[in-house]
């Protein structure tokens, strides 16, 4: 018999990989009788979406190099080239 603590771990795993059918059945039965795990599962799926969204957004930001940074990098490269 799986405990809530194990179920929480398996729910997380299930977001990554297909679980064996025995475990899937066990999870399903457990969720039917345990409302806290049900709530956890709902929140976990929400969170999972948020994380994906968050990194997609992060990629859209456009951080440019400051002129000073550019200059510093360039100088360093030229210094190395002249070695």
């Amino acid at each position: 018999m799986l405990r809530c603590k194990d179920i929480a771990k398996l729910l997380s795993d299930s977001l990554e990989k297909e679980l064996p059918w025995t475990q899937r059945v066990e999870i399903r039965l457990h969720l039917m009788i345990c409302y806290v795990c049900r709530r956890y599962w709902k929140q976990l799926r929400f969170l999972h979406n948020c994380i994906t969204n968050y990194y997609d957004k992060k990629l859209d930001k456009d951080p440019a190099l400051s002129q000073e940074s550019k200059k510093r990098m360039q100088d360093k490269i030229i210094e190395e080239m002249n070695k």
Binding site: Y55, K61, L65, K70, M73, M81
Partner: peptide, 28 residues
């Protein structure tokens, strides 16, 4: 010419890195 790399690719490389590394200084 490598001396032109910063101008040509600096921003693109930085953008890629900033999304993956926590601190901007580390990214640069």
């Amino acid at each position: 010419n490598p001396a032109d790399w910063v101008e040509l690719y600096g921003d693109q490389l930085l953008k890629y890195t900033v999304a993956r590394v926590r601190h901007r200084e580390a990214a640069e």
